[in-house]
């Protein structure tokens, strides 16, 4: 299988070609190693970082932004969103605080401080 890909790791957006061969995934057109890693993952098990918000229950009209600490498998994006929507947190919250533990091999962390 051969596919044309655009790298999403950085804004340079390298146009790459990736092919699954017997000796692994062959990548060309990438400017750096991260492109090769992205293309390999995209051909075998694509992943994305999911970002969203969680309501802060003890503050008026306040949301805290969150993300998956590591990228998660693409097919679980909407499952992750459902889990994120179901929770709320209490302030204070610090950047990096774990909001949901153990989610598709990683966790959900806060990306903003709320005093």
């Amino acid at each position: 299988m051969k596919r044309d890909l655009v790298c999403i790791i950085c804004p340079r957006g390298c146009r790459m070609t990736a092919e699954i061969t017997d000796s692994g995934v062959l990548v060309s057109g990438n400017a750096c190693k991260r492109g090769e890693e992205y293309a390999t993952a995209e051909m075998t098990a694509p992943k994305r970082t999911v970002t969203s918000i969680v309501r802060v229950s003890n503050r008026v009209d306040t949301m805290v932004s969150v993300k998956t600490k590591e990228p998660i498998p693409k097919e679980h994006i909407f499952d992750a969103m459902e889990k994120i929507r179901a929770v709320s947190v209490e302030a204070p919250v610090r950047i990096g605080d774990v909001i949901i533990e153990n989610l598709f091999g990683t966790c959900i962390i806060a990306t903003k401080d709320v005093k």
Partner: peptide
């Protein structure tokens, strides 16, 4: 801008908007 993709060039790490601001 709660999405990620900030700071790759400047800080060498991928941050969300609020993290880059922080």
């Amino acid at each position: 801008c709660i999405h990620n993709g900030f700071g790759l060039h400047k800080l060498g790490t991928e941050l969300t908007g609020p993290e880059y601001a922080a």
